[in-house]
Amino acid sequence: MTHPTHPTRPSRDPLEVGGSVWLQSGTQTLGGAARIALLAAIRETGSITGAAKAVGMSYKAAWDAIDTMNNLAGEPLVVRASGGKGGGGTTLTAPALRLIETFRTIEREHRRFLERAGAAIEGFAADWQLIGRIGMRTSARNQLAGKVTRVTRGAVNDEVELALAGGQAIVAVLTHESTEALGLTPGSDAFALIKASWVLLMADEPARLSARNQLRGTVSRVTRGAVNAEVSLALDESTTVTAVITNQSLDMLALSEGERAVAVFKASSVILGVND
């Protein structure tokens, strides 16, 4: 019997700076690399059909692009000659030729800029990974970065432990497939997502609970609403966990800024992710 193989996570390539150039007229795009390439191909082939084929574009898409550029430019860029003794053809006007040369000049300068920027970021991979994390947008209120310290394989699911910056740890339960797809192994970086509504708060007193995650900290902020309150718990100088609880629970626990408390949530409530 053969066992199915699972895809392994590819090794990360070196960081590079990338970008593209396009020209605009107001809020409308006049030409980017694809449209400029189309104009250049028309110049070389003298034919819409030949140019479209050269840039991998359909005949209709090529004419749509030409119409758009002509309209936005406010003057003809492409002129199609009617058939005659020498047959018809397509030519570029002087403004179109200048547009190609202008774009090529900007493109060369842009390439030089990318080369300089690429050289400047050498050795700053960790900073760019951090930029990627802080730029992430998700509905989960709590986004905590850490390092995988342990992966325990079970009969159905895996248990992954993630060490946070301040020394406390989060445990997540996920499928074998998810563990392998994310490339989660001891020493790898990952982040945990936990919705604020999944976090329970309790006074900082010893208790026996079935929930695996119990993070201790100090209340740093309390925002009371009409029905619920948002309570932020500082685990250390850089890590905060936020919970949404009812005002009644807030009053019962007597939670206020500076009080010690424990954030409690199930391992199944933790979503793990990695930066590609």
Rank of each mutant, 00 (worst) to 15 (best):
G50N: 04
P14K: 00
A34K: 14
P7F: 04
T27H: 13
Q28W: 13
T27K: 12
L30C: 14
S20I: 01
I42D: 02
L39C: 02
T45L: 06
A41S: 13
S20F: 09
Q28N: 14
L38N: 09
A51T: 10
G31D: 09
S25Y: 04
S47M: 05
S20D: 09
E44C: 05
G18E: 11
L38T: 12
P7N: 07
R43D: 15
S11M: 07
V17S: 01
I36S: 04
P10W: 03
S20A: 05
T29D: 08
G18V: 15
I42S: 02
D13N: 06
L23E: 01
R43K: 13
R9M: 03
I48A: 06
S47A: 07
D13E: 12
S20H: 10
V17L: 09
T45V: 10
A34C: 09
S47P: 01
A40S: 14
S25N: 12
L23W: 03
A34N: 14
L15H: 07
T29Q: 14
L15Q: 01
G31L: 08
P10Q: 05
G26T: 11
L30Q: 14
G19F: 08
E44F: 05
L30S: 11
G46H: 03
A34R: 15
S47I: 07
I42Q: 03
V17D: 00
G19D: 09
A34S: 15
V21K: 01
A40L: 00
W22G: 08
E16I: 11
A51G: 13
G46L: 03
E16K: 08
R35A: 10
R12Y: 01
T49G: 11
R43E: 15
G46Y: 03
T49S: 14
T45R: 15
R35V: 07
L30T: 14
P7K: 08
G46D: 04
R9Y: 00
W22D: 13
R9W: 00
V17E: 00
V21T: 06
T27S: 15
L38R: 01
T27G: 09
G46W: 00
L39F: 06
L30I: 15
G32S: 04
L39K: 05
T8C: 01
L39P: 05
I42K: 01
I36P: 08
I48R: 13
R9E: 00
W22I: 02
S47H: 06
Q24F: 13
A33L: 08
T45E: 14
T29L: 13
Q24V: 12
P14I: 04
A37G: 15
S25T: 12
G26Q: 07
P14V: 04
R35C: 04
I42G: 05
S11K: 11
A34F: 07
P14Q: 04
T29A: 06
P10Y: 00
L15G: 03
G32E: 01
